[in-house]
Design a protein around this nucleic acid. Sequence first.
DNA 1: ATGGTTGATCGTCAA
Length: 268
Amino acid sequence: MSLRIVSWNVNSIRQRLDHVARFVAEWQPDVLCLQETKVRDENFPASDLAEMGFTHQVIRGQKAYNGVAILSRLPFEAQDHRIWCSKDDKRHLSVTLAGGSAGPIELHNFYVPSGGPTPDREANDKFGHKLDFLEEMAAWARVHARGRRLLLVGDLNVAPLENDVWNHKRLVRSVGHTPMESERMANLLEAGALTDVGRHFVPPDQPLYTWWGYRFPQSLERNYGWRLDHALASEPLHDALVRMEVVKATRAWEKPSDHVPLLVEIAT
DNA sequence: ATGGTTGATCGTCAA
């Protein structure tokens, strides 16, 4: 038996319902971790997702920006969230899944701040917020991720390795790929003794992307991508990792999200 | 130094 868990920044759940339905029909995920739902909880299309089979739902949204959700075919044993950087801006949710004979799996869904236009703490508060958020995640992972069967997924808004962007030299001073961010991401992995699931299945010398921007003309056709979406597995979960797939096909569908689904399969 | 596009909302802001 196995569990198919997906992370997807949908860039508005209401604009992407058809894509979610098509993706679910073709890839048969068990759990969806969504980011940038961009909707208040009372307006979340809960019944549409229940009709797709995701009858177990945890939703944390707000007006216009951010917002996360975990939608599951299987029941949760528990659900939780944390406030990061003292801002309740709807960037995190967690649930505990049954996980089979090896014990429950704690699943965390994150939407890390994008970081604004300039990679400078002094000139740009949003970049400071992003660095602080990543540091807080590392401190949390050191005490919380170790010794637990834990999977952390989400839009972390950092492409930490050279082959996580289409042109390392050109983009190394761009927010999302600066050494300041990459170091903090490495610290998060070290702190939690976490495996980078993407790079566990695709070696670091090969390009791997999950995001193709809207602004750059023909970014998909030219493959001007970044790996901003991640799955990180704790040590007790390492041997249960079966498969990882970046579902690039959705980016070519009509009116797509700029992010594509990241699918992780776990043996249960 | 700045553009380019999309979404929420309805003039901008965020990404």
